[in-house]
Design a protein around this nucleic acid. Structure first.
Length: 490
RNA sequence: GCGCCGUUAGCUCAAUUGGCAGAGCAUCUGACUCUUAAUCAGAGGGUUGAAGGUUCGAUUCCUUCACGGCGCACCA
């Protein structure tokens, strides 16, 4: 892709002039002694008189440049912030100054000098040596309005990160969120593990997979839609507390909270049920919010959210009763079907009562759950890996939690009865045979593992991207993923 | 998949009813050794996302396409 415009042509010309002067425009190393923000802190007390004891060397990108004949001001940006430099011909020498004048906004340079304060009070480096570290031949966006175009920002995240410091902050926060969760789990003796991304049989969720092919094995492989079944194999193996930050892939639509690849934390805890996992969940997330924001009350898109435990707990059918004008438990399958049709839900006609209830929940309830809320006791038909409730075999011990109308996590008492699990697989297999693209295949090896015996286990999945959206006040999942999926430009 | 909106100089944005495509920043030349959206004087920079149509004339109206945003549908 050879792009040519006047500005790039001029910059390449300057690049050649610098080379012809015997200077390497792309040298190999440089040794800064300070960062820009470090200087602003350390030299807070310096005055207008330059003093040799306040000597620093920094490296950064030129973000603004104001040339005045035989002197020049510029702002350099490094990973920590920006600082002003003041360059005078008499300080760096005529030859150096001639080269300096060929530097552009966007170039990465190194500078040495002493820190002082300008007449207008800005902490500044009075430079006596500059060095080009990397010549930029593509002009940056305009300094005042920055880079606004969403398409360019997502496609050229590097330019977005240079121009919009608040974007970088979001991703710093994302890393801190993951780190906070990891630290807490490690403290609680969870073991971080890695399981296959390429799976011969996909499962653990309902979603269409991405399919690929291994040439040597001569067989199809699937990018994981979940890692659930692998982590539970480890529970069988005696790793009683395991977790993985799993990049999962689902071949489905994209919108403000769906990207084809996304990050899910899954964890499994032997000898626990879903009630214990519920407590773990609200504590884990509340403490994460606390670590990031020093409070459990935050604002997301003008909504006040309170993460302080305990969170509200309500069963799925109760929640439908609360947000609709009927009690789903009091209705027959036929009456529920009518309610769903009236609510605009498209049904094939062969849906079970439980499937219709799940649909009604989506329509009547999900978007209304603003404060962190546990919805629990799900229909068995939509929960093939969850354990039945002892007193009601139509329901399973499962919960999801919702924040700001978004599903953020999913958990259950894991089904460990191998006979029951085989039946559930058979139901999925028959759905798959009927053309349900989100049903999945029987995983005989997983059943074999259960047959050895899996302890009672609680499991949890948390959508890390969505959690990050909430904690960084971002409206779209694309703003918490560095390189969101996009169609090719041409 | 459907609907609405958008795409104009490197960037951010204008362009009246269909009538010579503009500004600011950036760039180039000159002046300027405490400026900070530096200032002053001058200059260059455009296949208006692509292809077609209507018209004497299209950035503007119509059709198709591409990409993006938002909403809906899908995604338990």
């Amino acid at each position: 892709m050879e792009e040519t415009n006047e500005l790039m042509r001029q910059r390449k010309e300057k690049l050649n002039e610098i080379r012809e002067a015997g200077i390497d425009p792309y040298p190999h190393r440089y040794a800064p002694t300070h960062t820009t923000s470090g200087i602003l802190q350390e030299f807070e007390d310096v005055n207008e008189t330059p003093d040799e004891t306040n000597r620093v060397t920094i490296a950064g990108r030129i973000m603004t440049k104001r040339d005045h004949g035989k002197s020049s001001f510029a702002h350099l940006q490094d990973s920590t912030g920006q600082i002003q430099i003041y360059v005078r011909r008499d300080d760096i020498g005529a030859d150096s100054y001639r080269i300096y004048r060929r530097f552009d906004v966007g170039d990465i340079i190194g500078a040495s000098g002493v820190v002082f304060r300008t007449r207008t009070g800005e902490l500044t480096i009075l430079v006596d040596a500059v060095e080009l570290l990397s010549k930029s031949i593509r002009p940056l966006p305009e300094k005042w309005h920055g880079l606004q175009d969403k398409q360019t920002r997502y496609r050229q995240r590097y330019a977005d990160l240079i121009m919009n410091p608040e974007v970088k902050e979001v991703f710093v926060q994302r890393t801190k969120i993951v780190q906070a969760i990891r630290d807490m789990l490690n403290e609680q003796n969870f073991m971080e593990v890695e399981t296959p991304v390429l799976q011969p049989i996909y499962g653990g969720a309902s979603a269409r997979p991405f399919t690929t092919y291994h040439n040597t094995l001569d067989q199809p492989l699937y990018l994981r839609i979940a890692n659930e079944l692998y982590l539970k194999r480890l529970i069988v193996g005696g790793l009683n507390r395991v977790y993985e930050f799993s990049r999962d892939f689902r071949n489905e639509g994209m919108d403000r909270d769906h990207n084809p690849e996304f990050t899910m934390l899954e964890l499994y805890l032997a000898y626990a049920d879903y009630l214990e996992v519920m407590e773990l969940t609200e504590n884990l997330i509340a403490q994460t919010v606390e670590k990031i924001h020093s409070t459990t009350k935050i604002t997301y898109q003008d909504q006040k959210l309170d993460f302080t435990p305990p969170w509200r707990r309500i069963t799925m059918t109760e929640s439908i009763q609360e947000y609709s004008d009927f009690d789903p438990e009091a209705l027959s399958a036929h009456e529920l079907y009518t309610k769903a049709s009236n609510a605009g839900i498209e049904l094939a006609g062969d849906e079970s009562k439980g499937e219709i209830i799940a649909e009604l929940f989506d329509v009547y309830v999900e978007s209304k759950l603003i404060q962190p809320t546990f919805i629990y006791d799900y229909p068995i038909e939509v929960s093939p890996f969850a354990k039945k409730k002892p007193e009601n075999p139509e329901l399973v011990e499962r919960f999801e939690f919702f924040i700001s109308g978004m599903e953020v996590g999913n958990a259950f008492s894991e089904l460990n009865d191998p006979i029951d699990q085989r039946q559930r697989f058979m139901e999925q297999a028959s759905k798959l045979a009927k053309g349900d693209e989100e049903a999945f295949m029987v995983d005989e090896d997983y059943l074999r593992a259960l047959e050895y015996g899996m302890p009672p286990t609680g499991g949890l999945g948390i959508g890390i991207d969505r959690l990050t959206m909430l904690l960084t006040d971002q409206y779209s999942i694309r703003d918490v993923i560095l390189f969101p999926q996009m169609r090719p430009e041409n």
